[in-house]
Structures are given as structure tokens and as C-alpha cells.
Computed example of a mutant assay.
Amino acid sequence: MVLFHVPYVLPASVGLVPLSEGALGVSFFFVLSGFILRHAHAPEGFRPLTFYRRRAARVLPLHYATLILWTWLFFASWGNSLGEKVNSGVANLLVIHALFSGPLYTLGYNAVSWSISVELVFYALFPLLLVGGRAIGVFAACALAVLLLPDAAAAGLERAFPGSFHFHPLGRLLEFTVGMALHAVWRHWRPGERVATITQIGAILLLLALVPASAAMPPHLRNLLLLAPFGLLILGFAWDGPLTRLLSRPLPVLLGEASFALYMTHHMLFRLIDPLLAGLGAAIALPLAVLAAVLLSVAVFLLFERPVRALLNRPSAGRHSHVVVATPVPQGGGGG
């Protein structure tokens, strides 16, 4: 996702498209989010209010911090009327901006935060999906609806809500529920390291093959098709193996923990430093920008995100048990 945004936020210094299909990383993130949340919370003893509080402590502090910072830095130069800015600002404050059509909401203020709005809808639904096999049933219903959706109806949805299969929670529910369903597979089937390694490598090769092959497909069908490599990739790493152990080393773990901060801050940082890097050439400017974004994300995670989350989670730490099982899958984005 970081490289996907380069043409939009580093136009003067880089001015190229290093990863044209980077937006697909959001699909992987929603699948991973469903898997990790199902992994971390067992139906037995599950407390919805505790879950909601911990999820809010996970994503909202950084969302509001970046919203305030974006407003301070870019509000005056944002080329919309004051009324439009206020409407978009209220939607961002309530974290419901992904529910409204158009870039004023889905990409307003800190543009990447639309996915947080989608995640909050999934958090609201999660206690219902956690019971029995409801997640599997919802996934099956969503997959069937996508397969049976006429092209004309899909085009109509896109006209009424541009990016409806990218920005709207209903368009992403398929991915979140398949992540929860994948956890049932992982829970009941644990193959050996050989199968895990083959699955990891096979998923990467399948992804590399399907991404260009599916580029011309309608968005809803492409999202469904790419669930196969994304799901296999998550299962392969959750099953353990040499690549999993490599990612379990201290530095990859730290970068994984800071990935949400990277996602939430890189867009603004790139806009700020783009004029400073202009003239260096893309070969120098791009690595410097990415390095700066990674270092900033680690600092934000260590100095803001983790301490604030610990503070917000402290009151109930001694009163309620919270089941958390370590997962070999690196946490990323807003779903961890």
C-alpha cells in the first residue's frame, strides 16, 4: 500500500508507479483481520463490551491523532468548500466516512483511514459472526451473491457508489468472513512443515500469476478470485515453516507491530517531504522516503500507539480475562 500511493503523494520527487496493484493489499488486510480476530477471541467467555473497548483502543487513538495532524497541515490547502470540509470532517470524527459515496468521504482528510471505518463495521458484527458457523455461512452467502450478481447490477452499484467494491463495508464483508472461516480450517487441520512451506511458496506464485491475469475482471469477481492466494498465504504462514520463523525474529516482529502506524502516517509524510526530495531523482528519493516512513512508524508505535493502548486497556486488566493466543501470522494494518 505504501508504494501504491507514491504517484499521488510523491509526484515531484519520484513521479512513477512502483507498485500499480498495491491497492490489493487492502484485500489481504481484511482477510488477515478476520483470521486474527477469530484467533484471538474464543466464543467461550467472550465479552462484547470488552472486545469493543480493546478494539477502540487499538485503532481510534492513532486515527484521531492523524486526523488532527492532517487538519493542521493540509486543511487550508484542501481545494473544497468549507461546507464540504465540515461534512467530511464530521464523518471522519464519527468514523463512518466509508459509508458515504464519493472521494470527499472515502478519501477525505487522512485518505487511508477509510479502511478504519470499514473495520469498525466488522468489529460491530464480529460478536454475531463469532457464534457457531455464522461466519462461514455469511461468507458462502456473500460469495454466492458475487457470483450471481449481473454485470449490469454491478455497474449500477459502481455508478451509484464509486468504488463500492473497494470502499464500502458490504463490498469487503466477503474478505473479512473468509478470514474467520479460514481460522476454522487452521484450527482443525495442522499439517507438517513440508506442507506449510509448499503452501507458502505456492500461494506467492499463485498470487503473482493471478494478479495480472485478473486485471481486466470486474472488481467484485476479482476480489473473489484473489481470496484463493490470500487465504493460502495466511494458512501457510499460520501453519509455521521456515518463512514463518524468519518473520518471527525481533526486527520483522517490530516492523509488523508498527505496520498500522506506517499505514496511517505514510500518506501525510510523503506529501510533506515530496518538495524536499525533488531533484534527487527517483532512485534516491524513493528509498529515502520509504526509510523515513518506516522510521517514523516505529517511533509512532513505540512512543504513542503502544503506550496509549496500554493506558486505555489498563482499567479492566485485573477484572476480566481476555483470551489471546499467539499467532505466527504477522499483525498488520488496523486489524491486529
Rank of each mutant, 00 (worst) to 15 (best):
W189T: 05
R194N: 08
T197A: 15
T199R: 02
A203N: 03
A203K: 00
I204Y: 03
L205N: 09
L207R: 02
L208H: 06
L208Q: 14
L208I: 10
A213S: 15
S214M: 12
S214F: 05
A215N: 08
M217W: 14
P218S: 13
R222E: 10
R222P: 07
N223Q: 11
L226F: 04
F230P: 00
L232A: 13
L232N: 06
L233K: 00
L233A: 05
I234V: 10
L235I: 07
L235H: 02
G236A: 07
G236E: 03
W239R: 07
D240R: 10
G241F: 05
P242F: 09
R245W: 13
S248L: 15
L254S: 09
L254Y: 06
G256R: 02
G256H: 06
A258P: 06
S259G: 06
S259E: 02
F260M: 05
F260N: 00
Y263Q: 01
T265E: 03
T265S: 11
T265C: 13
H267N: 09
M268S: 10
M268D: 09
M268V: 09
L269E: 14
I273R: 01
D274W: 03
L276H: 08
L277F: 03
L277T: 01
A278F: 05
L280N: 00
G281R: 01
G281F: 03
P287K: 13
P287D: 10
L288D: 03
A289R: 00
A289Q: 01
A289C: 10
V290L: 12
A292G: 13
A292Y: 06
V294K: 01
V294P: 00
L295G: 08
S297C: 05
V298W: 04
V298H: 09
A299V: 12
V300P: 01
F301T: 01
L303I: 11
F304A: 11
V308E: 07
A310R: 12
R314N: 06
R314E: 13
R314F: 10
A317Q: 14
R319D: 14
H320A: 14
H320K: 12
H320D: 15
V325M: 13
A326P: 01
T327E: 12
V329M: 06
